[in-house]
């Protein structure tokens, strides 16, 4: 059964079908949200995830079937976290200017090392969000712009600045 068919079933009153969407997306959302819990608090992350799933369930009637449920769920979860924890600014800077030079420089040059995850813990939540959504979860800048309510240019620039920051600290701390 496709995702669309499952959503249609839920819309028609079959609540139990929601479990399929939950099963498919729980771990994905949990590990993503875990990156934003400062104390790596499992209970806190469980609460964010739970609230996101409940909100998503009640919003299913407004869900655009041409979109992916996962993208929508992540957006709800990020907003939930934003409101509760203030981890992200209410609105990221949409007027962020396109820094073409920086973007080009880090488009291909950047190389991920697992040690960088420790550095990622130290950088701001908004930079971390753009980085993980693009580099790990595979979302496009357009999708990230919609999810975080920022501009396309802001998403690209934030990503490049994050990569630069990661690389600089990594080279400094690990001497590579």
């Amino acid at each position: 059964m496709t995702e669309k068919q499952i959503i249609q079933k839920i819309r028609n009153g079959d609540d139990s079908s929601y479990r399929k969407l939950f099963e498919e997306n729980y771990n994905r959302l949990f590990r993503f949200m875990m990156q934003f819990s400062k104390k790596k608090d499992y209970d806190e992350v469980e609460e964010w995830v739970q609230k996101a799933f409940i909100k998503a369930f009640y919003g299913l009637s407004n869900f655009n079937l041409s979109s992916k449920f996962k993208t929508w769920l992540f957006t709800i979860a990020i907003n939930e976290m934003k409101q509760e924890m203030g981890l992200l600014r209410n609105k990221l800077n949409s007027d962020e200017e396109l820094d073409n030079h920086l973007i080009e420089e880090y488009a291909n040059e950047f190389e991920w090392h697992y040690d960088m995850k420790i550095i990622l813990e130290q950088i701001s939540a908004e930079k971390k969000a753009v980085f993980i959504l693009f580099e790990i979860e595979g979302y496009s800048h357009n999708e990230i712009a919609n999810m975080l309510d920022i501009s396309y240019a802001a998403s690209r620039t934030i990503l490049s600045r994050t990569k630069k920051e990661l690389q600089t600290i990594w080279q400094k701390e690990f001497g590579k």
């Binding site: 479990r19 939950f22 099963e23 729980y26 771990n27 949990f30 590990r31 875990m34 990156q35 790596k40 499992y42 992350v45 469980e46 995830v49 739970q50 799933f53 991920w112 697992y114 995850k117 993980i132 580099e135 790990i136």
Partner: peptide, 17 residues
């Protein structure tokens, strides 16, 4: 990128559901 520590604990999914 994700490690085992990022994954939910054993009964987490059941509890949340």
């Amino acid at each position: 990128f994700y490690s085992k520590n990022d994954e939910p604990k054993k009964y987490s999914k059941f509890r949340v559901w």
